[in-house]
Amino acid sequence: MDSRPAPSLTTTPLSPPVRVVLIEDDTDLRDSLADLISLAGFEVLTGGSALAFYQILASQPFEIAILDVGLPDQDGFSIVEHLKANNHRHGIIMLTARDGTEDRIQGFRQGADLYFTKPADGRELVAAITTLALRLRAVDHPAPEASGSADSYPPAGPAPQNGWYLDHQQWALLAPTGQSVSLTAQEMRLLGCFLTIPASADGIATRSALLGAIGKNPVETEDRSLDAAIRRLRRKVEQAVGQDLPLKTVPTKGYQFTAPLQ
């Protein structure tokens, strides 16, 4: 097990830097990926076994785990099962030589956020880490104290006029009227997706991203659980504040939040 701090020159906008645990038993591949991830501005902790992972878990905070499925002492699926059973809130990326659909489905069902088949493209892996970390921070991190800094996010205080506000500290959605709707963890993750949409996406959160946010398999294009979750959330908001949730269905793509959201 070793720790590789990110170099002073970073290419990721995330601050503080994201700490990633990379567990891979192929030493050459592990070192190569660790160097690449570190150069992208992340802090990297590495190990070659499930035991090494559990030692890190017990002693070091981190946000993202990249887990090889075929480890010598315990497979990566078992690690994911352990994390979810004990309510650990980490982003999980599976990395494996297995390319079968059933293996990917098993990974998603057990709680993995993303699944990469070896050899993984390094740039894609870095982009995935960034996107996953943004999503996790949007949901899990409480609002900082107001400091007057442009970097303070999300802003402290009541909902902005004519807009909606996602309160990460109270797990609530504030309507423009100031009324509050208590949210579940799943609903927080779902709405958090609308805060991390790339500018090029026209404000549309894809079905794949939203399915992943609620713990479903993004590969299952016929999965209707997302639509059911959206319907429940719409009904809940309408009953609580007497106002429609401004979520628009975008056919074949996903959903769009059509009002200001912070």
Rank of each mutant, 00 (worst) to 15 (best):
R207E: 01
S15P: 05
K253I: 00
L45H: 13
T117H: 07
L183E: 02
D28N: 10
T10P: 02
P142G: 04
S8A: 14
I23E: 06
P260S: 06
F116G: 02
A120K: 05
S38H: 06
F108V: 00
T101Y: 08
T131A: 09
D244H: 15
G163K: 06
Q243W: 08
A133V: 09
A65R: 03
D35L: 12
A159I: 05
Y165R: 15
S200K: 13
G163W: 06
G163E: 08
P251C: 10
L114W: 03
T196I: 12
L233C: 05
E222T: 15
L114Q: 14
G91P: 02
A201K: 01
R234V: 08
T177Y: 10
G254R: 03
A172Q: 11
H141C: 08
A120P: 05
N217Q: 02
V44H: 01
W164Q: 12
T27Q: 08
A52P: 01
A240N: 10
S32D: 08
D28W: 03
L45Q: 04
I79P: 00
R135P: 06
D167N: 14
F53C: 04
S182H: 14
V21I: 11
P155E: 06
L39H: 14
P158R: 10
P251R: 13
P142H: 03
S49C: 13
L83S: 04
G76T: 02
S200H: 13
L233F: 02
D167S: 12
R135K: 11
P260D: 03
V181W: 06
E24V: 11
S38D: 02
A201G: 00
R98H: 15
A97T: 09
D73A: 07
D103E: 15
T249E: 02
T184D: 04
H168L: 07
H90C: 12
P5D: 12
E24H: 07
L29S: 09
L134K: 15
A133G: 03
T27F: 02
A240G: 04
S38N: 10
G107Q: 01
D140C: 05
G203F: 14
T131V: 02
P251G: 07
T131G: 07
G242T: 09
G215N: 11
G192V: 06
I92L: 14
V237C: 07
S182Y: 11
S149W: 01
D140I: 09
G47M: 13
R207Y: 04
S8F: 13
L33I: 09
P13S: 04
F42E: 05
G107E: 06
L166W: 10
F62G: 00
P158F: 05
P17M: 09
R231K: 14
D25R: 10
I66Y: 11
K253Y: 00
L9M: 12
T46S: 14
D31G: 00
G91A: 02
P13A: 13
S59D: 13
M1A: 12
S38T: 14
I23S: 11
G76L: 10
R98F: 05
P142R: 01
